[in-house]
Design a protein around this nucleic acid. Structure first.
Length: 604
DNA sequence: GCCGTTTTCGGCCCGACTGTTTTCAGTCG
């Protein structure tokens, strides 16, 4: 099967070929945009094709849809092949080298007669070393050195550190931010880019500083422990840290800080759409401010709020800036200013965590947690929660008879209740206030087996309030099979109320399962089931893009940490970020309900 | 080649940097 990445690569090759052939530059941009769009799709383009929905992809029109149709039917596109035949195939690998674009790569491939795409990069390195490049028109001494460095950077990139998960990036950014704040001339510091937008994985750390003494700040930044100073100029600097991570600093005077913050927060597509929108008003946007195209005057902005306001838009939270309709939405709410920003769900809205694993040994199919129920209750109290759901893994099927499992489950319920009541008792002795203790919900995380059956005998359901159903095996099943499996699992028992970490992805190590989400969402909606937004940093599952889709269909979500130790309950905020990136408001999230309402939803 | 609260034609984001140039093309974010 042809993947989105492969399609994107193919479209970028066409764009590059067209660039060399001096084709209309907007046609080139159209191909690049289509490539970006397909690469960032939340589902496989092939599946959309199956459903006849290719043209719903932004940047895919009639012509592109026809080409892709041919690609999926026959495995190739005659038009693409004809275009690619006009340029040497050996130029494409060269595009991976920083500093080389289509024109230069073409020039090199033709002039130096590179014919083998597999060896072209080492062929080029060889050519540079024997100074065959400097004499070419448009190249010089410096180009040779740059190309060599580019090849080395490319080779390093091959073994480059994986992208960071959010907490790792957060922590690193915080360390640097505290370091920068030591300087009195630093007025304000913010993270920028994907970290500020709370994207699930982060490449580089970008940081902004507002100051009137930019050179002093840059000097201070460059003294931060590092392996290599990559770049240093009047507006910022870049460091490669000893842990292999890159940090970019941008400085700006306070009066113009807002435009800079906006510009470098991105996303690229958000900024492009915003500039197009501004142009219609006769305004041109840049990192320095807003220029009136008639008077040619540049207006500066100290805050982002003022920047968006000057465009007649209500403030758009960074998590939404992905060109998914947020500008149109801000425009609508901007008509009645009082409505202000969209009421996205906040961390403080969350009233309970329904997915934690304790150390109580019920001989489970998977792992136990590290801490006792009392410790979890204490932590939930500390976090200000109204309720806590214990969702251990089900007892293993292979090691127990049905009767034994029922026994284990009944013992477990008795154990939790006993410990809960003595915990409450102890607490009420200590404090004067009566009532208002964290409520305990006895749940279970039950495997959906490969055939869609739940890994818990019918009788054992009597000992739980509700169940989270999750996949923990056979992630590579075919789309149709795994979709049926999930549907069977979530409808197998009325006590199933939540679909746990739905895609089962592991960031950086495992793709999510390939399932028919539209169908699954429909059934969840019919049965009023919640989709879990698992806040565990390697999961962040549902992914934000699917939250966005599910929300459109009116589904509810439950943000859980899946904590295996009490400390991990603090990771809730990353789940909230995912929800926000999917445009979820408080009412979309089941565990923002007060205990009584929540209980009404949970126990049917 | 895409796209539409100026919709089926005629537009299409902005600026920095760099090296090879002598006014700019190419690349990048």
């Amino acid at each position: 099967m042809i993947t989105n990445t492969e399609i994107a690569t193919l479209l970028r090759q066409i764009a590059a070929a067209y660039q060399i052939l001096n084709e209309n530059r907007f046609r080139i941009i159209a191909y690049e945009r289509a490539a970006d769009s397909i690469e960032h799709l939340s589902s496989e383009a092939k599946d959309l094709w199956d459903d006849g929905k290719l043209k719903e992809i932004p940047g895919i029109g009639q012509a592109m849809a026809d080409y892709l149709d041919e690609l999926f039917r026959t495995g190739k596109v005659r038009h693409f092949e004809a275009v690619l035949k006009k340029v040497p195939a050996s130029l494409f690998p060269l595009l991976s080298i920083p500093g080389l674009g289509p024109k230069k790569a073409y020039k090199l491939a033709i002039s130096l007669k590179f014919s083998n795409p597999k060896s072209v990069i080492s062929d080029l390195a060889q050519a540079v070393k024997s100074h065959k490049v400097a004499s070419l028109e448009g190249f010089g001494e410096k180009s040779e050195a740059d190309i060599l460095e580019g090849i080395q950077a490319y080779q390093r990139g091959q073994i480059k550190e994986k992208r960071m998960v959010l907490p790792e990036a957060d922590q690193l950014a915080q360390t640097i931010i505290s370091y920068l704040k030591k300087l009195p001339s630093v007025r304000r510091v913010d993270s920028l880019g994907s970290l500020r937008r709370q994207v699930s994985t982060i490449g580089d750390i970008d940081i902004a500083v507002a100051t009137t003494k930019s050179s002093e700040v840059i000097e201070h930044f460059c003294k931060y422990p590092h392996k290599k100073l990559i770049e240093k100029g009047p507006t910022g600097a870049s460091l490669l840290l000893t842990n292999g991570r890159q940090v970019d600093l941008r400085v700006q005077k306070p009066a113009a800080y807002g435009a800079m913050l906006q510009y470098f927060t991105g996303s690229k597509n958000h900024n492009i759409k915003l500039r197009e929108y501004a142009l219609e008003k006769g305004l041109s946007l840049s990192e320095y401010g807003i220029k009136n195209l008639h008077t040619k005057k540049l207006k500066e902005f100290s805050t982002e709020e003022a920047f968006y306001q000057a465009l007649d838009l209500s403030y758009i939270p960074p998590e939404l800036r992905e060109d998914q309709g947020e500008i149109e939405a801000a425009l609508r709410s901007g008509i009645s200013r009082t409505q202000g920003k969209p009421p996205l769900v906040k961390l403080t809205d969350v009233k309970g965590d329904l997915h934690v694993h304790t150390s109580y040994d019920l001989q489970p199919s998977h792992d136990l947690g590290a801490d006792s129920i009392e410790k979890y209750l204490d932590q939930a109290t500390k976090l200000g929660y109204e309720y806590l759901g214990i969702s251990d893994h089900n007892p293993s099927l292979t090691n127990h008879s049905e009767k034994q499992i029922i026994r284990i489950m009944s013992d477990r319920k008795a154990y939790y209740e006993e410990h809960y009541y003595s915990w409450v008792k102890k607490l009420s002795k200590k404090s004067q206030t009566v009532g208002r203790y964290v409520q305990l919900v006895i749940m279970l995380e039950v495997d959906i087996l490969t055939d869609g059956q739940l890994a818990l005998p019918e009788m054992a359901f009597n000992y739980v309030d509700a169940v989270i159903a999750s996949l923990h095996s056979s992630f590579t099943q075919e789309r149709e099979k795994i979709s049926e499996r999930i549907l069977k699992g979530i409808t197998a028992h009325p006590k199933v109320r939540i679909l746990g970490h739905p895609t089962c992805r592991m960031l950086g190590s495992r793709e999510g399962v390939d399932a028919d989400w539209e169908k699954i969402f429909k059934v969840c909606r019919q049965r009023d089931l919640a989709l879990e937004i698992n806040a565990y940093p390697q999961r962040l599952d549902l992914p934000d893009s699917l939250v966005f889709e599910a929300k459109k269909q009116g589904l509810h979500f439950c943000i859980n940490t899946d904590a295996h130790a009490t400390g991990q309950m603090n990771l809730m905020r990353y789940g909230v970020s995912v929800a926000r990136r999917g445009w979820a408001v408080k009412d979309d999230i089941i565990n923002t309900l007060g205990y009584n309402d929540f209980r009404k939803w949970l126990v049917k």
